[in-house]
C-alpha cells in the first residue's frame, strides 16, 4: 500500500524538490532572494495563472484541452477596461465578465461534446475569436482607473512580516474550492472517471456529456476570473496581453503531475507547478542580464521534460500491471 502511494506522488515530489532546489539556488546566489515577501510575491505575481491553471487541470483530467484561455483573459481585461471607462459600475462589470466567461466555455463545451468536434480545433477557434474581439473593442491599450479596481489592486493582506494581495486570496479560495469539488463531489469524481475511460464512464451510467460541458464552463469561469485578477494586476486592457498563457497553464498542471492523457491530476500539484514557474521567472529577473523571453523558453523546456517523465512512468506502470 505504501509503495503504491509513493509511486503515485513521485511526480509531485519531483516538482516539490525542484521548487525547493530553485529557491535554495536563488537564495545562495542572490541577496534578498530568500525572504518571506519574495515567496509571497510569487503568489501575487501569479495569482491569475493559478486560477486559470486550476480550470485547465479540470479540462486536462477529462482528457481534453483548452488553448483559448490566454485570449479569454485578454478579452476580459479589454472589455472590462472599456466598460469601466464608459462609466459602468465595477460590480456589474465583474459579474458580466464572469457570465461571459461561463457562456464562452459552455459554448465550446457544447461544440466539443454534442457535435464531437475535436477540442483543439474548437478552442483554437475560440482563442482567435477572443483575440479578435479584443481588437474589436480597441486596438490600443485602455487604462483602468476605476477606483474600486485601483483599490483592490493596491490592497494588502498582511501575513506575518509580509503581505499578499486580495487576488491571492481569491486564487487560494479557488484552489480550495477546486480541491473540494474534485475530491468530495460526484461531479469531481465523474471528471476523473471520464478521463480514465470515457466509454466505461458512459456504460456505468455517469452523465458524461453534461459533465464535460460543465468542465469547459468551469474553465471558462476560471479564465474570466483570472482575467479579472489580471486586470487588477495590470490595471489595463490590451489585445496582446497574456499571449501564450495557455502553455503556462498547461505546463503548471503537467509539472504538477496532471497526465495529458487524462484521468490523473491534482490541483495541489498545479499550485506547485505555478510556484515553480514563478520561481524561474524570479530567478531570471534577479539575474538581470537575461531577457524575459528566457522564462517562456525555460518553461517550454520544463514542460517537455515533464511530459518525458510522464511517458516513462506510464510505461513502467503498464509493464507492472501486466
Amino acid at each position: 500500500m505504501k509503495t503504491n502511494l509513493q509511486t503515485k506522488f513521485i511526480p509531485i515530489l519531483i516538482t516539490f524538490l525542484l521548487l525547493i532546489g530553485l529557491f535554495a539556488f536563488g537564495s545562495f546566489k542572490y541577496t534578498g532572494f530568500f525572504s518571506l515577501q519574495n515567496f509571497l510575491n510569487l503568489l501575487i505575481d501569479n495569482a491569475f495563472l493559478l486560477i486559470t491553471a486550476v480550470g485547465m487541470t479540470f479540462v486536462l483530467i477529462t482528457g481534453g484541452i483548452d488553448i483559448s484561455i490566454g485570449a479569454v483573459i485578454a478579452f476580459v481585461c479589454m472589455l472590462s477596461a472599456d466598460l469601466l471607462q464608459k462609466g459602468w459600475n465595477a460590480a456589474v462589470v465583474m459579474v458580466l465578465m464572469l457570465v461571459i466567461g461561463c457562456a464562452f466555455g459552455t459554448g465550446m463545451g457544447i461544440l466539443i461534446t454534442k457535435f464531437k468536434m475535436q477540442p483543439f480545433i474548437v478552442t483554437l477557434a475560440g482563442m482567435f475569436l477572443a483575440r479578435g474581439l479584443c481588437y474589436v473593442v480597441s486596438i490600443d491599450t485602455i487604462i483602468i482607473d476605476n477606483p474600486v479596481y485601483v483599490a483592490i489592486s493596491q490592497s494588502r493582506v498582511p501575513i506575518g512580516s509580509g503581505f499578499i494581495s486580495w487576488s491571492v486570496v481569491i486564487a487560494l479560495v479557488v484552489l480550495a474550492a477546486a480541491y473540494y469539488i474534485l475530491h468530495f463531489s460526484k461531479f469531481g469524481r465523474t471528471v476523473y472517471a471520464i478521463g480514465g475511460n470515457e466509454q466505461s464512464a458512459r456504460l456505468m451510467g455517469l452523465p458524461v456529456d453534461s459533465t464535460k460541458i460543465l468542465v469547459y464552463t468551469l474553465n471558462g469561469f476560471c479564465s474570466a476570473l483570472a482575467g479579472l485578477v489580471f486586470s487588477f494586476y495590470m490595471l489595463s486592457g490590451y489585445g496582446l496581453h497574456t499571449v501564450g498563457l495557455e502553455m503556462d497553464a498547461i505546463a503548471a498542471a503537467v509539472i504538477g503531475g496532471t497526465l495529458l492523457t487524462g484521468g490523473v491530476g491534482y490541483v495541489i500539484g498545479t499550485l506547485l507547478g505555478v510556484l515553480t514557474q514563478g520561481a524561474i521567472q524570479t530567478l531570471i529577473m534577479f539575474e538581470g542580464t537575461l531577457s524575459s523571453w528566457w522564462t517562456k523558453i525555460v518553461v517550454a523546456a520544463l514542460l517537455c521534460l515533464f511530459i518525458l517523465i510522464q511517458r516513462v512512468f506510464t510505461l513502467v506502470k503498464a509493464k507492472k500491471a501486466r
Binding site: 495557455e246 502553455m247 523558453i297 518553461v299 517550454a300
Partner: peptide, 8 residues
C-alpha cells in the same frame, strides 16, 4: 510548445 517558446 514551439508556438509559445518560438517567439522567445
Amino acid at each position: 510548445i514551439l508556438m509559445v517558446a518560438g517567439r522567445g
